[in-house]
Design a binder for these strands. Sequence first.
DNA 1: ACCCAAAACTTGAACTCTCAACCAACCCGC
DNA 2: GCGGGTTGGTTGAGAGTTCAAGTTTTGGGT
Lengths: 188, 188
Amino acid sequence: MTRWLDEDEQELWRAYLWSSRLLFEALDRQLQRDAGLPHAYYMILSALSEAPGRELTMTELAGTVRGSASRLSHAVARLEESGWVARERLAGDRRTTVARLTAEGLAVVVAAAPGHVETVRRLLFDPLGEGQAEELRSAFRAVLGRLDPEAGSPAARWSGRAGAAVGSGDLDGDQDGQDRAGGHGGEG
Amino acid sequence: MTRWLDEDEQELWRAYLWSSRLLFEALDRQLQRDAGLPHAYYMILSALSEAPGRELTMTELAGTVRGSASRLSHAVARLEESGWVARERLAGDRRTTVARLTAEGLAVVVAAAPGHVETVRRLLFDPLGEGQAEELRSAFRAVLGRLDPEAGSPAARWSGRAGAAVGSGDLDGDQDGQDRAGGHGGEG
DNA sequence: ACCCAAAACTTGAACTCTCAACCAACCCGC
DNA sequence: GCGGGTTGGTTGAGAGTTCAAGTTTTGGGT
């Protein structure tokens, strides 16, 4: 028989569901208002801004933001219309499309990043007490390990140096080529 | 100046984002495949199944599943087309619409609940180690408190006794009328 | 009685995402 | 040097969500 959720498990599940829904909605609204794009699109621009040369193939981009090829294709098409990303075929393997952040696109990320990070901090990190962030981190690392077979292991993901990144003046000194956390603050 | 996320904070933020995306996608796929509806719609049916008389007004429903009025209206319209929910005007205040779960709708929840709960358990709870669920719960309680002004305080939300609930034979013995956790297993 | 704001939904259009089908370029083995 | 699978992306249709703008009903004031 099914093992139902006990009372504590239900409270966690619902708190998680609602928190996540409300948080992601708040983020979408904030970014839509301040930058004219949804969070998923912001993540694409942000990923490109952190990539070496500010460009990635569609497949790399899909891996980076954990989205389907189809989603990326639609999204990048829209971002291209807005003039924030340019696409071109890769010489050498002409199946491959390279998406490159334009100057206008970079300006959008740079302008949007502070408000975005502040929103994340205010809604997610600030309410957490001493040590809770630590706990959350290890918990989600475990959950992600289950959900994403290739998470945790593959080196060189989000690894490009922070040189190309947004808000570089405020970087957190990640100079080594570790297999995670390339970053600055414009990521999510 | 903006206070950017440090390395640990970024790792948490990304693990949380990706876990949540992958988890919700997995849930949507499982429910779509097994029951022919997305998770948001399942939550509506589930909420109704737990409500006294298996009916709620649109506003109550919106509060219960944390969705906008517009979303609920579209969703319930679709569920009504499918024959799983019936709508009618409330005598006494004819602005108000009452949504009631039909027998067919109840059958859908009953059939879908076990697979759904098992998926949640497998993807979310199983990977968590000793005590991590506790930690997560208190962390999200804090976050939800920030995001939802009226969370935590108002009694009588999701409070209907479990009598009307799904999978009643497998209930977790919640006989009292506490202000949370009405339940069985068909909630999320 | 009457007017006006608020409450409770509903509707339509725009947008994003998913799913399935598709196309083009590459690679491999014979 | 050519079929046949694989890889990398795109496309179109369908479904769900959001946002802004309705509609109807109610509750007050005066």
